[in-house]
Design a protein around this nucleic acid. Sequence first.
DNA 1: CCATATACCTGGCAGC
DNA 2: TGCTGCCAGGTATATG
Length: 271
Amino acid sequence: MPELPEVEVTRLSFADRIAGATVTGVRLGKPLRWPLGLAPQSLVGRRVLGVRRRGKYLLVDLDDGLLLWHLGMSGSLRFSDDRSPPLAHDHFDLDTTQGLLRLNDPRRFGAVVYAPSEQSPEAVKLLGHLGVEPLNGGFDLDTFHQGLRKRTTVIKQVLLGGELVVGVGNIYASEALFLAGIRPTVRAHRLSRPRAEKLRLAIIDVLSRAVAKGGSTLRDFSSAEGKPGYFQLEARVYDRAGEPCRVCGTSIRRIQQGQRSTYYCPTCQKP
DNA sequence: CCATATACCTGGCAGC
DNA sequence: TGCTGCCAGGTATATG
């Protein structure tokens, strides 16, 4: 589910409502990817200052430390006054004076990790290597192109890696490369500056539009208010293998890269 | 250091 | 129906 747009849509759907709340209880379900890192009950009484996003992580700032939330492949959050008993895949509850923040994650690749501060080893281990945010105005061509020139890996893998720019996952990597007219198999260091610029703009464009559409709901994503996204209806290539390209009519192709599916139009996207 | 493979886990779906 | 195999939005870690 969750690439940058889905994580940002999630954040926007509950950040204002939880800000200022006091933690009243914590419940853990089955183990997630990583342990919380402190005794759950020690969070009780702390105040929630706000919610930020870094790449695909949500940072819930507390008056003492912060919680890093990652949605993995199948996670979604809900924030509401509904305190019904947890369902089978509800694996983390943060109860507060202003609502219950509940993580549902069938595959359990997600995590909630406590860190004393953003500079602490716990936080740096997860966030330290991340590249620039694409939607903050700090995603500049010079740095991006310089980074591409240092990598011989295929461009699709560089985008997924998140060390140059964060937030682009499997859906939006295929979509951005289509918009930029670049084959996913091109080696990063071979991209000219003009093509790097087309790609930079395509990434910003596709991620922004996806946030505006509420993200992509392929099977079960929804915001913390329970609303689905609609960007999947605008996908140009993702999950469209064998269907005609919306621009030129050529059959969309699916290939494997790094054990993941990649989709592209062999006519619109040049080697 | 670099590039690629593996591991984690559950559920949905196509095909038989 | 029920079984099997494949596929799925991520990423730290192991391996070559």
